[in-house]
Simulated assay, not measured.
Amino acid sequence: MTAGKLAIGDKVTAVYKTGSYIGEVVDVSGVAKAAVRILAVIEHPTQGNLHQPMDPNVSFFHQRRALAFQEIALMPLSTIEPYGGNVPDYQESLKRALKSEMLKMSDLEAWAKRSLQELEQLQLEYFPN
């Protein structure tokens, strides 16, 4: 989206770092970014080191919090889209986004455990001694 198409008060979705939000435009004076007031969370930010994804043994494992209700953040214009739906309650949206992210991690953990079991079985078949 471009700054010229945004107006103060517009409801939008936007991505900030690794989280996705519903918000309200509060300033469009920038060329590459717009200031957006957070109203709800769509997707909780990703945890860990983004430069070394899936690695739990990095020197600094980032804990990323969702942006707070009514917090204003500069969002890249390229991530901003118009939003026409009802804005959910912030706390409920945060709870839903957090549970969704936790479920993804739980599913990933289950997949990793199952993959390891299959690889161990293959190891026995490949190298029976």
Rank of each mutant, 00 (worst) to 15 (best):
Leu6Lys: 01
Ala7Gln: 13
Ile8Leu: 09
Gly9Gln: 07
Gly9Pro: 11
Asp10Cys: 03
Asp10Gly: 05
Asp10Met: 05
Lys11Pro: 08
Lys11Leu: 14
Val12Thr: 09
Val12Tyr: 00
Val12Asp: 07
Thr13Asp: 07
Thr13Lys: 10
Thr13Trp: 06
Val15Met: 08
Val15Lys: 07
Lys17Val: 09
Thr18Val: 08
Gly19Thr: 02
Ser20Tyr: 00
Ser20Trp: 09
Ser20Thr: 13
Ser20Gln: 13
Tyr21Gln: 05
Tyr21Ser: 03
Tyr21Leu: 06
Tyr21Asn: 08
Tyr21Ala: 08
Tyr21Glu: 06
Ile22Asp: 05
Gly23Phe: 01
Gly23Ala: 02
Gly23Asn: 07
Glu24Leu: 02
Glu24Ile: 03
Glu24Ala: 05
Asp27Ala: 10
Val28Asp: 06
Val28Lys: 04
Gly30Phe: 06
Gly30Lys: 01
Val31Ala: 15
Ala32Lys: 15
Ala32Leu: 11
Lys33Phe: 10
Lys33Asp: 07
Ala34Glu: 04
Ala34Phe: 03
Ala35Thr: 00
Val36Arg: 02
Val36Cys: 03
Val36Glu: 00
Arg37Phe: 06
Ile38Gln: 10
Leu39Lys: 07
Ala40Tyr: 00
Ala40Ser: 02
Ala40Trp: 01
Ala40Lys: 00
Val41Asp: 04
Val41Tyr: 01
Ile42Met: 10
Ile42Ala: 10
Glu43Leu: 12
Glu43Asn: 14
His44Ala: 13
His44Arg: 02
His44Leu: 10
His44Gly: 04
Thr46Gln: 12
Thr46Ala: 02
Gly48Arg: 06
Gly48Asp: 06
Gly48Glu: 12
Asn49Met: 03
Asn49Arg: 02
Leu50Gly: 01
Gln52Val: 09
Gln52His: 14
Met54Thr: 10
Met54Gln: 12
Asn57Asp: 08
Asn57Val: 10
Val58Glu: 08
Val58Leu: 10
Val58Gly: 05
Ser59Gly: 01
Ser59Ile: 13
His62Trp: 13
His62Arg: 11
Gln63Asn: 13
Gln63Glu: 14
Gln63Leu: 13
Gln63Lys: 13
Arg64Ser: 13
Arg64Asn: 11
Arg65Phe: 15
Arg65His: 15
Arg65Gln: 15
Ala66Met: 06
Leu67Trp: 00
Leu67Cys: 14
Leu67Phe: 04
Leu67Val: 11
Ala68Val: 07
Ala68Thr: 10
Ala68Trp: 11
Gln70Phe: 14
Gln70Cys: 06
Gln70Val: 04
Glu71Met: 11
Glu71Val: 12
Ile72Cys: 02
Leu74Val: 02
Leu74Pro: 05
Pro76Asn: 06
Pro76Ser: 11
Ser78Glu: 14
Ser78Val: 14
Thr79Gly: 07
Thr79Arg: 04
Glu81Ser: 14
Tyr83Met: 06
Gly85Ser: 08
Asn86Val: 15
Pro88Val: 04
Pro88Ala: 03
Pro88Tyr: 03
Asp89Asn: 14
Asp89Ala: 14
Asp89Gln: 10
Asp89Ser: 14
Asp89Lys: 02
Tyr90His: 04
Tyr90Lys: 07
Tyr90Pro: 10
Gln91Gly: 04
Gln91Trp: 08
Glu92His: 09
